[in-house]
Simulated scan of single mutants.
Amino acid sequence: MPPYTSAYDCVVLGSGVLGLSIADELTNRGLRVAIVARDLPEDVHSSAFASPWAGANWASFASNPAERRRDITTFRRLGSLAADHPDLVRRTPFVYVWNEGEYDGPWYKDVVYDYRVLPRSSVPPGWTHAVGFTSYTLNPPRYLAHLASSLRSRGVPILRHRVSSLDEAYSLLGPVSLVINATGLGSRTLLGVEDASVHPIRGQTVTVRAPSVVGCFGIKDPQPGGQQCYVIPRPGPEGHVTLGGTFLPNNYSTLPDPDTAERIVKDAYKLCPQLASGSGSGTSRTNSWRDIQIVSHNVGLRPARTGGMRLELENRVLGRVNMEQKDEHAGLVPARGQVGRGREVGCVHAYGIGPAGYQASLGIAEEAADLAVGYLAKIKSKL
Results as ranks from 00 to 15, higher is better:
Q204D: 08
W127R: 07
S63P: 00
A37K: 02
G352I: 02
G19I: 03
P224D: 11
L78S: 07
P157W: 07
V321Q: 12
A377K: 13
G215H: 11
W289F: 13
T286V: 10
N251P: 01
V156A: 01
V12A: 08
P86Y: 10
P106M: 06
L31T: 05
F49G: 05
G319S: 04
L144P: 14
E25M: 09
F217L: 14
Q274K: 14
V95T: 15
G337Y: 11
I35Y: 04
F75H: 11
G307S: 08
L191M: 10
S281Q: 12
S46Q: 07
L362G: 10
H45I: 00
H85M: 05
E194G: 01
N250F: 14
G19V: 03
G225M: 12
P141L: 00
G236Q: 08
L118K: 08
L159T: 14
T128L: 13
A59Q: 03
P200N: 01
R336K: 10
S296I: 04
D84Y: 03
V208Y: 01
P157C: 04
T128Y: 01
E100W: 12
T92E: 08
V214A: 13
A56M: 02
E238H: 10
S63Q: 14
R120G: 01
Y143A: 08
D257Q: 13
T242A: 10
L275E: 06
L20K: 07
Q359W: 06
V265N: 06
C10G: 06
H146R: 05
Y252P: 10
C347R: 05
V44Y: 04
W98R: 11
H349Q: 15
P125W: 00
I201P: 02
G186P: 11
H45E: 15
D259S: 15
P52V: 04
R77S: 14
S212Y: 00
V36D: 02
D71T: 11
T128R: 10
V317I: 09
R320C: 01
Y375N: 00
E67Q: 15
S187R: 01
D43M: 09
K382A: 14
I292C: 10
G16D: 06
L318E: 03
